[in-house]
Structures are given as C-alpha cells and as structure tokens.
C-alpha cells in the first residue's frame, strides 16, 4: 500500500516537474526574446548543423523512397483502370500533406530526440546541470532553448526537402514503370498541388519540432543519474516522441479538416 502511494506520489511529482519545466521554458524564451544577445547562438547553430544539414541526406533518401513506393503501389492498382496519371495526385497529396512531415519528424526523433535525451542525461550524470544551476544559469535556457530554436528552423526546411525528394521519387516511377511523359506527370503534379497544401504540411513540422525537442530534453532531465539511466532516457524519448508525433499529427489533421483545408 505504501509502495503504491509512493509510486503515485512519484508520478504526481513528475507531472508537477513537467509543468515547472514548461514554466521555466516560457520564462527562458521570454528572457531570450528580450535579450537576443544572451541567446546561445553558437549552440543553436551547432544543432542546426547536426539536425538539419547532416540529416538532409537521410531525409532526402527516405522521402524519395516513400514517393517511389507510393507511386509503385498506387500505379499497380490504378493502371488497371487506366488512370496512371492520377498517381501524381496520390504521391503529391499523400507526401505533402502527411508523409513528408511525418517522415521528417520520425527521422528527427531518431537523430535529434535521442541525442538530446542522451546529451542532457549525460550532463546530469556529470553534474553539469547542477553546475549550471549553481552558476545561476537556467539549464533550460542553456540547454533547451537553443535546441528548440534550431529544430523549429530546421524541421520545416527538411520537410520541404523531403517533399521535393518524394515528388521526384514518384516522378521516377511515373516515367519509367508507368510510361508517363515527364511533362505530363510533372504538369499534373503542379496542377493538383496548391501552395496551401505544401504550407499546411510544412506547418505541421513546427509542432513536431517542439514535441521532439521538449520530449527529448525532458527525458534527459529526468534521466536516472547512471549510465543505464541515460540509455533508458534516450530510448524513452524516441518511443514517446513517435507516439506523440502520430497523435499530434492526428489532431492537426482534424484541426485542418475542421477549418476546411
């Protein structure tokens, strides 16, 4: 009975700490907005490089293959009815609205989310987080805000790259396997897709970026101060990020549907 009570208290405390974490984050973002010079620009740049440029290859590859696979699957089915050209619609819409942002989110979770959790977890083990606190520096401002800013910048851009790669992957299948002329496929793609579709998909990435960063960092701060604790934190960050990513995606899609987009 006492153990159950203890567990409940522990969970309750964790939630309270999470709320505190958000409060601290809000304060620190305000500080950085008021004093942009105090923002950790170099760290931000480092994470832009790590999560952005260095993720570009894998994003392009995976999204390209997604387009490839979609076109292949859709083509198999739709060519029975002679509607090969509609593969362009299928690939375009599913990539821009859904798969592009989601795949980028998944890749970022694997690359950045786990790295954030591991990094902050390790810093906690090494008492670097304590050192920051006793220096009077908010660990959230020092460790979370640069990551958050970097991810907010980088993820939408990666989604654009992923969308483009996916469309080109679809095009490749369209002109080879489905024997469509490049101009017809590409023309159809440009015709059916609207700036709105692209923008709405890319906007999702801002939410994904915030989710991945905050979950990764939170897990890092909550890591048990031992080597295994850091590993568990990284794994936990990836698992809960992926889950919440999909749930958030669902809600964003519902929201888009409700405003008629």
């Amino acid at each position: 009975m006492d153990r159950i009570g203890g567990e409940i208290r522990k969970i309750l405390r964790q939630w309270m700490q999470l709320v505190e974490f958000f409060g601290q984050l809000g304060l620190d973002i305000r500080t950085d907005l008021r004093h942009p010079g105090r923002h950790r620009w170099r760290e931000t740049l480092y994470y832009i490089d790590l999560c952005g440029r260095r993720s570009l290859g894998i994003v392009v590859l995976i999204c390209g293959l997604m387009g490839f696979i979609l076109a292949l699957q859709g083509g198999l089915l739709i060519r029975e009815y002679g509607g090969e050209l509609f593969v362009a619609d299928l690939v375009g819409f599913s990539l821009l609205k859904e798969l592009g942002p989601l795949m980028v989110g998944m890749i970022a979770t694997g690359r950045a989310g786990s790295a954030f959790a591991a990094e902050i977890g390790t810093m906690k083990v090494n008492e670097e987080v304590s050192a920051l606190t006793t220096m009077g520096i908010s660990p959230v401002r020092f460790l979370v805000v640069p990551k958050l800013l970097a991810m907010l910048i980088v993820l939408p851009l990666l989604a654009v790259a992923g969308d483009m790669a996916g469309l080109l992957g679809g095009l490749l299948i369209g002109v080879t396997y489905l024997d469509l002329p490049v101009s017809a496929y590409w023309g159809r793609t440009l015709q059916v897709l609207s700036p709105q579709v692209l923008t709405l998909g890319v906007l999702k990435c801002f939410v994904f970026a915030a989710l991945i960063t905050l979950i990764g960092c939170w897990r890092g701060f909550q890591a048990d101060p031992d080597a295994q604790g850091v590993g568990r934190a990284a794994t936990g960050a990836v698992v809960s990020s992926i889950l919440l990513l999909v749930v958030a995606d669902l809600f964003i899609t519902l929201f888009y549907a409700s405003i008629g987009c």
Partner: peptide
C-alpha cells in the same frame, strides 16, 4: 560549418518558395 548551415537554410528556403510558386502561388 557556418557556411554549410547557412547554405542549407538558404537553399531550403529557396526550394520552398520555388515550390510555392510552382504550385500556383
């Protein structure tokens, strides 16, 4: 690193704008 990060950001922004206009902006 600065250069390539900047290059990455700028090129993706350009791609975004190009795609927006391609899709009929």
């Amino acid at each position: 690193k600065l250069f390539w990060s900047g290059f990455f950001i700028l090129s993706m922004l350009v791609l975004f704008v190009v795609m927006l206009f391609g899709f009929g902006l």
